[in-house]
Design a protein around this nucleic acid. Structure first.
Lengths: 143, 143
DNA sequence: CCCTAAACTGGAATCATTCCAGTTGTGTGA
DNA sequence: TCACACAACTGGAATGATTCCAGTTTAGGG
């Protein structure tokens, strides 16, 4: 680790920036997801416990909700898998999910900027976002 | 309703066509999903029970799996909602989900045929399908 | 440095779905 | 036409992710 760069936004600053109280659990969770992109709530729980000792399950869910609501984290929920969290927020990127092992990769939206965002028949729905999930096999499982 | 056309493929024929045994539960489930597009397992359970009397929870899940595996049904799983089943299979259509009430609408893929199917960086994944979910508000909830 | 709302604890509950072991029923081969 | 093997179904218990709840602790503004 040896956190060299003092200039980079610290977890504390991030939290204060969105008006959230600074707590050990939040800092630890933020770092956990930074270290392990696409972490599950359970991954975060282990990671936070490694760092802080005893932390309740509920605390981790609360933290993840708070951070997600504040847009410091983004939650993705691939069908048939527990929810996963990532730090890349704000950009319109999507995901590849491996059918075999569940590994997830990030995919940038290439065609223009928001390709399928405008269906011709929207059934009168007011559409806010389009989410693309690619299903396939990861390098390891396609062997 | 008044099922006039005798030529149309019957549930029995559909089942035999894919090599599945013809059972009352399967016929009822197939009709249930036909009547109520995007039905949940629970919707199907009620519907099948209305028609046949006592049917076990497990039977409905078994039936839905069998029909899904045989491509007579397609399963969709919007984040935060129980799985839903539909009869439109084989075509590459997508879904709009209402953030408020969970109502689902079908959306045909317009841009070309499979718009976002080819991300430029696929991380070495072998991609099989692309699934698009639009999130927004249905006509009722946007009022 | 004190107090209040926000955050956290720990245990029970919920919901969709699956597991399991025993019973029933479809449809094929004799 | 019928028996029998295996697929399908029964019913009850178990699972896994997540949430609810009521009481306790703590961050940080006044």
């Amino acid at each position: 680790m040896t956190s060299t760069a003092p200039a980079a936004t610290t977890p504390e600053d991030l939290l204060r920036g969105v008006g959230l109280r600074v707590t050990a659990a939040r800092i630890a969770a933020l770092r956990a997801v930074g270290d392990q992109q696409h972490a599950t709530a359970d991954d975060v729980l282990s990671s936070v416990r490694d760092e802080l000792g005893t932390v309740s399950v509920q605390a981790v869910y609360d933290v993840l909700h708070a951070l997600t609501d504040a847009h410091l984290l983004r939650r993705i929920e691939p069908a048939g898998h527990p929810a996963r969290y990532e730090r890349r927020t704000g950009d319109n990127h999507h995901h590849v999910v491996c059918r075999v092992c569940g590994t997830i990769g990030d995919v940038d939206c290439t065609v223009g900027h928001a390709p399928c965002l405008t269906p011709n028949d929207d059934h009168g729905f007011v559409i806010e976002t389009a989410e693309v999930t690619y299903w396939g096999l990861c390098p390891g499982c396609s062997a």
